[in-house]
Design a protein around this nucleic acid. Structure first.
Length: 659
RNA sequence: GUGCCCGUAGCCCAAUUGGAUAGAGCGUCGCCCUCCGAAGGCGAAGGUUACAGGUUCGAGCCCUGUCGGGCAUACCA
């Protein structure tokens, strides 16, 4: 049951005599924020009255008179400047709750989409052979939630993990493998050794790049200082407006100088790290041409040189398995994992096509797509002939359109890539792949304590796995503590571990799902693993308490649900509030899908668990006043448990029976 | 320089896309386990929604300007 849609349909009918386009107005029906304004309110009479040039209360009265809400509602009321307030009858609400409970499909009476669409969701996308860290969790859990929810709503969904398995990191690994590998270590744990080699080569490449950049950076800083000094000494201060402008320019200069100093310091620190270590400086000296060598290895791989290709095929499986282990732990699955390598042999064709279509042309030796209104072009081929990120993305769009004919392709990617996607989408549309809706579902960057994009400290591997372990460890501590506090502990050691896994991982996922602002956030263990307040734990707890009531009362809840004589009666305010919240589930899913924001669902579930807690405090269930009241409350409990369980499932979070 | 995003309680974030008295969590301070699970509940304190104008029945949200922050800005992905 979707109450909002029901009301929209009825209001549309009431409006049909007044306007030609009722649909535009009924979008302004909202759930009321104050109980005294009823359950829902229609806000459209004020703008409508303006359109009709009539008093808004009069229009509202007329609409209310036309409105047919049958026996569902109390008579609609007009309030304030022309709000129409609607309050549902308790017996009608009770009937809807029963319908949800007794829905044989287990969908809680939520109808699938009238017009199912095909969605491709591109998410997670880690780089193979580079350690995954907390920054990768965001795309993964948000994408997973979108896939689950869209699918539940009846859409066809293809979740695609577009992994980076063809990039320059393999040039580094190939070079490292040839030059520095520890054969025994490689045999024992290939991924571990490859990761070490990647980090080592990366360090050496960065060193040489840094040595080249250093004079440039110093020169830049000096030039800035000069400019600053010249401006400060100029005598433009006579005119106040000019002085203000000068001050502003000086501030900007100072700011960019500070940035340059910071960048320089960072560069120097990096170089110093290598120079401090005799071993590293020796390697750096011995491998003076490492930058070009690495590029050459990558290029050889890309043109299919047999030995590099063989090694790539050898490296890939263990690396994928390593990533897969994390996904298993997070309980994330994909419908397909077509990495960049999958599109390799289509890239050349893409560039040729774009050129033929007159979209791309040569520029400074590279091939670029110039778009009106864009300050920079989209590059699809480098001077040296290598293809780029954009080329692969275009080939991917082409493939997806041909294979699945999707209505929409969603990219769950960090917001820093918004320019890239804007250009990519525009190019794809002009290229003839503008059929599907292309959407960048962006999110903010996860920052470290230093306020910069999160990175594992150079050299160590405490990445994602360490975070997962810590989450479960903290959860295990709380689970144990809580169980020990019970009169008789009821969880075995194995059960505790299982619960700790669900609670710990759930907390972690929830931290990202409950906040989908585009702004960045600073990573913190405490925030990420919080288990009080608006957290997954709170909902898991509410669910466990419901289940505990059934266990304690030895209630066969399934039998009770199916007993036609069992009824729901909403008498207490806490019962009615809970009922209204339960019936809002479908609307929460709609709003999640409307703009792909999982926090719409977390907010809903938090409200629901909240209402349940109030109900739990105020309305005894097992000790209800009479049998009918007990039955009614048991049914309310059951629908709450089912709604929370389903809602958590759509978030990718597990509910538990006991905790 | 240009473009995009942002500025809401001590901290971290909401606000159903222009609706009625801006709400949660964390933290702080009070209460509440003889009573279905205290990972909880009830209450208190905390706000000129960065600032100044404008648009209208109505603005945290839209427009203009100012200040502050973040990101991006052709051969990385």
């Amino acid at each position: 049951m979707n109450i909002l849609r029901l009301l929209q349909a009825q209001f549309s009918q009431a409006l049909s005599g007044l306007v030609a386009n009722p649909a535009e107005y009924v979008t302004q029906i909202r759930r009321s924020q104050e109980p005294k304004f009823g359950d829902y309110q229609a806000n459209f009479c004020m703008p409508l009255a303006k359109q009709l040039d009539r008093p808004s209360r009069e229009v509202a009265q007329e609409v209310a008179a036309q409105l047919d809400l049958g026996e569902w509602c109390e008579p609609a009321e007009v309030a304030g400047p022309g709000f129409i307030n609607v309050r549902f009858r308790d017996d009608w609400l009770a009937a809807q709750l029963l319908a949800a409970l007794r829905d044989p499909t287990g969908r809680l009476a939520i109808a699938p989409a009238d017009h199912p669409q095909t969605f491709v969701v591109d998410y997670s996308g880690p780089n193979v052979a580079k350690p995954m860290h907390v920054g990768h969790v965001r795309s993964t859990v948000i994408g997973d939630c979108l896939v689950r929810t869209l699918r539940f709503l009846g859409h066809r969904v293809i979740g695609d993990n577009h992994i980076g398995d063809w990039g320059t990191q393999f040039g580094m690994i190939l070079y490292g493998y040839r030059q520095f590998r520890d054969e025994a270590a490689y045999r024992a744990n290939p991924v571990h050794e490859l990761a070490r080699l990647y980090r080592l080569v990366r360090k050496l490449v960065d060193y040489h790049a840094g040595v080249e950049a250093l004079p440039r950076q110093r020169g830049k800083l000096a030039a800035q200082a000069e400019e600053q000094a010249a401006l400060a000494n100029s005598s433009a201060a006579a005119d106040p407006a000019a002085k203000k402008k000068l001050d502003k320019t000086l501030r900007q200069l100072e700011r960019s100088a500070a940035e340059a100093r910071e960048a320089l310091a960072e560069l120097e620190a990096k170089l110093a790290e290598v120079e401090r270590s005799p071993e590293l400086s020796l390697l750096a000296a011995e491998h003076a041409t490492i930058q070009s060598e690495v590029l050459a290895e990558t290029a050889k791989l890309h043109v299919g040189e047999p030995e590099n290709l063989r090694l790539w095929k050898e490296f890939l499986p263990p690396c994928l398995e390593d990533i897969e282990r994390i996904y298993r732990r997070l309980q994330i699955t994909f419908d397909c994992t077509f990495g960049e390598s999958f599109y390799h042999d289509r890239l050349e064709r893409v560039v040729v096509d774009l050129k033929q279509a007159g979209l791309a042309r040569e520029s400074d030796g590279a091939v670029a797509v110039f778009l009106a209104g864009q300050p920079v072009p989209l590059l699809v081929q480098k001077q040296d002939g290598a293809f780029l990120y954009a080329t692969t993305d275009l080939a991917t769009i082409q493939y997806r359109v041909e294979k699945w004919q999707p209505d929409a392709i969603l990219y769950v990617v960090d917001h820093r890539q918004s320019l890239h996607f804007a250009q990519l989408f525009e190019t794809a549309r002009r290229w003839g792949y503008g059929g599907p809706r292309l959407e960048h579902v962006s999110f903010g960057t996860v920052l470290g304590d230093d306020g910069r994009p999160f990175k594992t400290r150079s050299g160590d591997v405490v990445g994602l796995e360490g975070l997962l372990d810590e989450a479960v460890r903290r959860a295990a501590h709380i689970v144990g503590e809580n169980d020990d506090r019970k009169p008789t502990p009821e969880l075995s050691a194995a059960a505790r571990q299982q619960v700790a896994e669900a609670v710990g991982i759930g907390a972690l996922k929830y931290a990202d799902l409950s906040q989908n602002r585009t702004s960045d956030y600073v990573f913190s263990y405490d925030k990420m693993l919080a288990m009080q307040g608006n957290t997954a734990t709170y909902m898991q707890y509410a669910h466990a308490r419901v289940r505990s009531i059934f266990a304690k009362g030895k209630v066969d809840i399934a039998a009770l649900v199916n007993d036609p004589s069992a009824q729901i009666v909403l008498a207490e305010p806490a019962e009615r509030a809970l009922a209204m919240e339960l019936l809002g589930f479908a609307e929460a899913l709609d709003s999640l899908v409307a703009d792909f924001r999982p926090n719409q669902l977390t907010t809903y579930l938090f409200e629901l668990a909240n209402r349940y807690s109030t109900f739990f405090e105020n309305c005894p269930v097992l000790k209800a006043e009479n049998a009918a009241q007990k039955t009614s409350r048991l049914l309310l409990c059951e629908l709450t448990a089912q709604t929370i369980r389903l809602g958590l499932e759509l978030l990718g979070i597990q509910a538990v029976e006991r905790m």
